[in-house]
Structures are given as structure tokens and as C-alpha cells.
């Protein structure tokens, strides 16, 4: 009888061990990388490139899922509330920390409801102006904006978007009264900039690159702390006199809180192997 009880107990313990996610057996089924914005959004490319290579290193498929809504809050909340077993992780970023303050009742706390895994990549934003704006650089923009206080407008992809917040910080830094015009997405803002109906906007550099290269908009400054290799001739706002100005859109992986440390470490190691600069840049 005692032997039977002991055997049953050992069996239960073994079953529990098999059912739990330790780094030893993790991952033994497909993982999901959740990006809480629609396909084609700024971070899409970053996530998809990483998912493919991580799948090779982990030996399991990594499904890239778009789950847009509420400025990224809905999808990120799914990860925050998920089982901490390592199979669902978030491609998070600047929006996580912005939502923390901007929403009256955020669905999660970005500092306590997630376990950080790795800071992955950064994309600078850029200040672009309508082609016929008289200003060509930050000092000239400041002078022009002060001379035209209350008569200028900047566009954005919507309230709370990185394009809004970048321009909001910039406008605050140049100390002028410029009206914000929120659009439903960056496309409408860009169209109106091209048509000269608004004066400037602050998109992610990649998004603006075709227009900059095509000469249909005027690049004024990179808004990140360093120049971009994509546009090395364009000086940063910091270099042009706005000391310390830095608006960079960043991306990182996050797991739900209470995810076992060995899983966090393994996901980090795989990410890190994928993201050593030369291989990633070659991709």
C-alpha cells in the first residue's frame, strides 16, 4: 500500500514536472510573437525579420501575430495577462511607456506586469517640412515659427502616436504656438504635407525616406540622438541647437511577469545571437 502511494506520488510529481515550462524542455511547441499594431506598421519589419531567424535557433515555429487596437494597449494587455510559460511574448516599444501615462486607466503597468527580455532595435524620427517652407534647419524653423506664431500647423498619425509626441516635444522645445492636426494614420498627414496644407510632421525616418529622397518634402533634422546611417548628411536636432533632444522609437521583447528566469534567459540568448549587429545588418 505504501509502495502504491509512493509510486502514485512520484507519478504525479513527474507529470507536474513534464507539464511545467522549464528552460530544459522549453520550447516544445510553437511560440507567438505578438505585435499590437496592424500589418505594415513601423515595427512589422523588425518583428518579422527576427521571428524567422529565432525559429531556426529555437527549433520551433515563431508565429508573428498582429493584434492592433487602442494604440497597442489591447494586444500588449493580452501578453501581460497570459500564462507565464514563455509561449506568448510581446514585441513592445515606445508605445508601452507612452500608454502608461497617456491613458487615464492603463490596462497594465509596463514596469511591473512584464519581464523585460532584450532591447532590440531603434528607429529615429525625423522632422520634415513642406517643400516650400522658408526654413531649412532648426534655427530657421524657430525664427519662422516665432514670426508666424499661431498660424502654423503640424500633422500626425493620431493623438498619442509617436509622430504626435515627437512633434509635440519638438514644438515645445522651439517654444512656439503651433497647432496639432491629428489624422487617422500617417498617410493622410503626409498627403497634406505634400499638398502644403500643413507645415511639418515628425514621422519615423523610414516612412519618410521615399519622399525625402524624391525631394517632395524638406528634411530639417533627425530627431534621434545620433545621425542615421540612412541619411548621414542630415544633422540631428541636438547638433542644430536643441541640446539633448532625442526622440527615438525603440523595440524590445517582453514576457508576462512571473515567467521563469531560465526561459527569460534562453529567449534573451536566442535574441542576442540573432541580433549581434553584423548578421542583423546583413539581413
Amino acid at each position: 500500500m505504501r509502495l502504491t502511494v509512493l509510486a502514485l506520488s512520484l507519478g504525479l510529481l513527474a507529470g507536474a514536472a513534464c507539464g511545467s515550462a522549464t528552460a530544459g524542455d522549453w520550447p516544445n511547441r510553437p511560440l507567438t510573437m505578438l505585435y499590437p499594431f496592424t500589418a505594415g506598421s513601423a515595427g512589422d519589419g523588425v518583428g518579422r525579420i527576427l521571428a524567422n531567424r529565432m525559429a531556426e535557433l529555437l527549433g520551433q515555429p515563431v508565429i508573428f501575430e498582429n493584434a492592433g487596437g487602442a494604440g497597442g494597449m489591447t494586444g500588449a494587455n493580452r501578453v501581460a495577462k497570459a500564462e507565464p510559460d514563455g509561449y506568448l511574448f510581446l514585441l513592445g516599444g515606445t508605445f508601452n511607456v507612452v500608454n502608461q501615462t497617456m491613458y487615464r486607466q492603463p490596462l497594465y503597468n509596463v514596469e511591473t506586469d512584464f519581464v523585460p527580455v532584450a532591447l532590440l532595435a531603434e528607429q529615429p524620427t525625423v522632422l520634415i517640412a513642406r517643400k516650400d517652407l522658408p526654413a531649412n534647419n532648426i534655427p530657421e524653423l524657430i525664427a519662422y515659427a516665432r514670426a508666424n506664431s499661431g498660424r502654423m500647423q503640424y500633422g500626425s498619425a493620431g493623438i498619442g502616436s509617436i509622430t504626435h509626441l515627437s512633434c509635440m516635444l519638438l514644438t515645445s522645445a522651439i517654444g512656439s504656438d503651433v497647432t496639432h492636426v491629428p489624422y487617422r494614420g500617417g498617410g493622410g498627414a503626409l498627403q497634406d504635407l505634400l499638398a502644403g496644407r500643413i507645415d511639418y510632421q515628425c514621422p519615423i525616418l523610414t516612412v519618410a525616406l521615399p519622399q525625402i529622397q524624391g525631394g517632395t518634402v524638406k528634411p530639417i533634422a533627425v530627431l534621434g540622438k545620433e545621425r542615421s546611417p540612412t541619411l548621414p548628411a542630415l544633422a540631428t536636432a541636438h547638433e542644430q541647437g536643441l541640446e539633448g533632444f532625442d526622440v527615438t522609437n525603440w523595440y524590445g521583447f517582453f514576457l508576462p511577469k512571473d515567467t521563469p528566469a531560465p526561459i527569460v534567459q534562453k529567449l534573451h540568448d536566442v535574441t542576442s545571437r540573432r541580433c549581434r549587429p553584423p548578421p542583423c545588418r546583413r539581413k
Binding site: 525579420i49 532595435a121 534573451h268
Partner: peptide, 15 residues
């Protein structure tokens, strides 16, 4: 990554 304007963070900033 460069093609999409993303800069990979340096290894010491990935932890």
C-alpha cells in the same frame, strides 16, 4: 534591418 531604417542595439544594451 538597415533597409527598414532600424539600428540594432549594441550587445551591451541588449540585456
Amino acid at each position: 534591418m538597415k533597409a527598414i531604417g532600424a539600428l540594432i542595439t549594441a550587445p551591451e544594451r541588449q540585456s
